[in-house]
């Protein structure tokens, strides 16, 4: 077992976990933060997306011990106007992928603001990339939504950047 500390949604949490425990299971099963979802447990759906020091990661492939002393934000700690936009634009149906979509969108907007390009960015040299719907879709493609709420999610993010 490993004793670790981690800042989760602003407060220091002490965790006593085996090294094999994923960050996702540590959040859900040890800290009771079930807002972060498990959809595939292998990095193929994005439902478990959280922010580690502001960067979006999939918590299922992260071992909790690797993130000792890091700053983790889950959906329970997100306060973003995106959340209202998701409701207004019906950017979800069942709600299971939603936490991951929102955390991913928050992280994605930070990446974009820092000038990070995507696979559909035409001019890689520029740091001022217009966040078109095509850019949003590519950058959000790591978050599956089986209900097919993609249009609403993109609309919510577009509203968020206006």
């Amino acid at each position: 077992m490993a004793d670790i500390r981690m800042r989760v949604n602003g407060s220091i949490e002490k965790l006593d976990v085996e090294p094999r425990v994923s960050l996702l299971d540590a959040l859900r099963e040890h800290l009771g933060l079930t807002g972060t979802k498990k959809g595939c447990d292998q990095g193929a759906c994005g439902a478990c997306t959280v922010l580690a020091d502001g960067e979006r990661i999939v918590s299922c492939l992260a071992l909790a011990v690797q993130y000792a002393d890091r700053d983790i934000t889950t959906i329970e700690g997100v306060t973003s106007p995106l959340q209202r936009s998701f409701v207004r634009h019906d950017g979800f149906q069942c709600g299971y992928c939603t936490s991951g979509q929102i955390c991913s969108a928050v992280g994605m907007l930070t990446e974009h603001a820092a000038g990070a390009p995507s696979a559909v960015t035409g001019d890689l040299a520029t740091m001022e990339i217009e966040l078109t719907a095509e850019e949003i879709r590519e950058r959000m493609s790591g978050n599956l939504c089986r209900c097919g709420a993609y249009n609403g999610i993109v609309a919510a993010i577009e509203e968020g950047i206006r």
């Binding site: 959906i75 997100v78 959340q83 409701v87 979800f92 709600g95």
Partner: peptide, 19 residues
């Protein structure tokens, strides 16, 4: 009309069966 469970689903409060 916006979904009544919209806030629950966008804040992580909605509990699913393993939760």
């Amino acid at each position: 009309i916006d979904r009544l469970d919209g806030v629950a689903k966008t804040t992580g409060a909605a509990r699913f069966s393993a939760e």
